[in-house]
Design a protein around this nucleic acid. Structure first.
Lengths: 341, 341
DNA sequence: ATGAAAGCGCTAACAG
DNA sequence: CTGTTAGCGCTTTCAT
């Protein structure tokens, strides 16, 4: 059926070793090089990755594990990762944990059984020891995205969540806002906590006390988020601005405002988080924190391939790459003269 | 390092052949079965998929090719497919064509080089002969999703686009609407054409002439879609209802209506397409055509695995599975008494 | 039911 | 630079 190295050897009169060497970029005599190129082309030769993997113990595949592929963050990140990896002839196996730690363990078992060279993951837990035991079982290098564990057991790529949130809230404060509501995720969630921390610090630095009733902690996956958000606007003392900490909260906020007929930025100012075309779709154009997914994928790929390349050398210090997020300017913030309250 | 069949053989005193047979579900003497199970557990044995693939020419992997993962359709479908395939111990390699036919060819070359057993794809072209040549080159079974080619060169899974559109438009007509605008994709795009056909037929069956100015043909990927849609409402004779044919057009329509302060359903009725949480997020609850992605993935997986299983038998008749879409009820249609215009 | 042995296609010593 | 050869871990006749 498909041509093998043996066929190429036969066609060129060279040995399989020479052919193999040539195929892997080794140097061969000029005239042989031409012969080989011709034979490869004519026989439409493609290497058998399985034979190579069997021999070298390298599969040139990596696993990609996320809670759910439907999430924009996950699919966009996968999109970038697959692009970067393909450049190195690596391919990507996708897996979902369905937001369960049991699912994560299963997925990692599965990926190990497929003998991936490395794993890219966004995990839901934070327990470093727990994950360490799982990772160590197979000795497969792992790079984490989006969230950090409570102590480092692998390389990690995150964005500067607190810094981005700080900038966002600061922008609102600069525009004269003091009653700034924050739609944050639930406590204990890495990005939710980090982003809230940025909010808190910005308020503190500006000498504005944080009003508890303006802090809305809703689970990212809460299907009633919309209703929770609406409550925020039925208060006697309505905020003049909102900082929303992720894609879903931002979308929900917009919908709530639309239904309540509260116009942005005339009646309320809004700073959102995550782009994914929101900046193209929503009017007025939103101020947004945008996660640089391409950069994240790039750094993650680099870290992972480095680990894979130096396997065995057991470099035990893990790196965390902290990437600056982008601030997208919009028309969703109104400059107010007097301070609120 | 990792245990091999040989290790199991040594541990149990049996031969590798027997161990292999056992691992593949063959029958062995009861007492040996116990011995083997124990050894597998204790040695934490995992089969080497590459050795198996090399020997059997089956990799238990399938490729998944779509234009772009950022599209909700693509990522949700992938999510479902990966679930179905995992049940059969298959894993999924993901690839993107970036909306180019050259990209598609490259991706298929790449997947073939990874020796996938089958390919699931959403293709951008329609030329059956063109794709036939590409598919035949490697002899890898392919299942297409979402769009059909101009003649069958592989199995295909689509939804009944025309039927769903017919039902949607009919619902609007039943509510008394006559001036029904349609936001359709560009001509020549399979789903756009099919869905428009449903619109046309529903109008015709109701004896309502289609007004050209109410048909808006915008490319699904048009970043100015929002502006195009706004034009629709600046006309002197504004439509009383809109049928929008996919996710992006639906989102854009909602945003346009919001900005123009046209309320749904009081001032205009809306029937959208594709859910992806829209039904949870948008108020009033939208009437929507929902694609049954889980079913699509299920059927596609079945077709593909059948092909893979019967490889060689060359059953040359290709199947097309046409799945009924769901209609999601909402509050976005107003019953009007008199017929418009 | 079990075992001996061949070989899938490739790489990597090693020798020349 | 090139060739010979062993063997990666598995499946699969073919005997027994």
């Amino acid at each position: 059926m498909a041509a093998t190295i043996k066929d190429i050897a036969r066609a060129t009169g060279l040995s399989v070793a020479t052919v193999s060497k040539f195929l892997n970029g080794g140097t061969v005599r000029e005239q042989n090089r031409e012969l080989l190129q011709k034979a490869v082309r004519e026989l439409d030769y493609h290497i058998n990755e399985y034979a190579r993997a069997l021999k070298t113990n390298r599969s040139r595949t990596v696993g990609f594990l996320v809670p759910k592929f439907g999430d924009v963050f996950a699919s966009e990140l996968a999109s970038e990762a697959v692009t970067k990896l393909k450049e190195q002839q690596y391919s990507l196996f996708v897996c979902e944990s369905h937001n369960s730690m049991e699912g994560e363990r299963e997925a990692i078992d599965f990926l190990a059984s497929k003998q991936v060279d490395g794993i890219m993951a966004t995990l839901i837990g934070t327990d470093g020891w727990y994950y360490k035991r799982i990772f160590d079982r197979y000795g497969i290098p792992v790079v984490l995205f989006d969230r950090k564990l409570d102590f480092d057991v692998c390389d990690t790529v995150v964005i500067d969540n607190a810094g981005a949130a700080y900038q966002a809230v600061n922008r609102l404060i600069d525009a004269g806002h003091r009653d700034i509501a924050v739609i944050r995720g639930h406590q204990g969630h890495y990005t939710a906590d980090q982003r809230y921390e940025g909010y808190e610090r910005a308020m503190k630095d500006a000498g504005i006390p944080v009003k508890e009733e303006l802090v809305l902690a809703v689970d990212y996956a809460d299907t009633n988020m919309y209703d929770h958000i609406k409550c925020l606007f039925t208060m006697k003392q309505r905020p003049t601005a909102i900082f929303s900490v992720n894609y879903f909260t931002t979308i929900s906020t917009i919908m709530a405002l639309n239904e309540l007929d509260i116009s942005v930025p005339q009646e309320i100012s809004l700073f959102g988080f995550d782009n994914y075309h929101l900046s193209q779709i929503v009017k007025p154009r939103l101020w947004l924190v945008e996660q640089p997914l391409a950069r994240m994928a790039e750094e993650g790929t680099r870290l992972l391939l480095d680990r894979i390349g130096s396997k065995g050398q057991e470099e035990a210090t893990f790196h965390t790459v902290n990437i600056q997020a982008n601030i997208l300017q919009g028309d969703s913030i109104r400059q107010i003269s007097g301070a609120g309250a």
